[in-house]
């Protein structure tokens, strides 16, 4: 046991200083592409109209790199509903509506020592009945329609519904959006959104500046 402790001490602090300092590492192509001012591209996800990127549709493929450049900011999410009551204790339930697995992994990454969301008072709940918010990722797979409805119903009020990733927000290139079944209070774009973006959205949704 003590050897673990020594290893931990030797390794030093690995936890990010975010949100007080800017994120240490951002996978640039998961951030918003901005038009360089010249050049035309055709977006495979139909996310670009008149040089403006519909970030909810963007699948982070980077195929527009000839005319667009990612801005590198993790403040991507759109928060329509805020609940300040979650400021100290925020329990979230992860719901996979039909993902490729990467959104789930990025959300679960928040518990690793690097992001350590527990330090910010955010925790995973094992059942929606004990959660304040539900983080829905993936397209709306037919088989998950009923479970999603039930999960949202099971959440106590006040509650927040997150649509995480391009699939959940718009269906991306794979299928239908989850907004067909439930209304999303917070949307977190990216394919997949990187953990900083998700953490940022969680903090914003409880009123942190």
């Amino acid at each position: 046991m003590s050897s673990w402790m020594f290893r931990g001490l030797r390794k030093g602090r690995v936890t990010t200083a975010f949100p007080w300092k800017p994120p240490e590492s951002v996978p640039v192509w998961t951030t918003r592409p901005v038009w360089k001012g010249e050049g035309e591209v055709s977006c495979p996800a139909d996310a670009i109209k008149e040089h403006r990127v519909d970030i909810g549709r963007c699948i982070s493929c980077g195929y527009c790199s000839s005319a667009y450049e990612p801005n590198g900011s993790v403040d991507l999410s759109i928060v329509n509903g805020k609940e300040r009551i979650f400021a100290r204790s925020y329990h979230v339930y992860l719901f996979d509506a039909g993902t490729c697995g990467s959104c789930n992994l990025e959300i679960k990454s928040l518990t690793n020592p690097v992001y350590d969301m527990n330090r910010l008072g955010i925790f995973f709940a094992s059942t929606p009945k004990h959660a304040d918010a539900i983080l829905v990722s993936g397209i709306m797979a037919e088989g998950m329609r009923e479970p999603l409805k039930r999960a949202v119903e099971a959440l106590p009020e006040p509650r927040l519904v997150f649509a995480i990733g391009a699939c959940a927000i718009s269906g991306g290139i794979l299928g239908k959006a989850i907004t067909e079944v439930v209304d999303a209070d917070v949307i977190v774009p990216g394919c997949p959104p990187n953990p900083f973006t998700i953490l940022n959205a969680l903090l914003k949704s409880r009123g942190d500046s």
Binding site: T127, P128, M144, E146, P147, R150, A151, A154, P156, E157
Partner: peptide, 12 residues
């Protein structure tokens, strides 16, 4: 008080 149905993985 709030009554919710049993949560069993999302199915009835």
């Amino acid at each position: 008080k709030r009554e919710v149905s049993t949560w069993n993985g999302g199915i009835l």
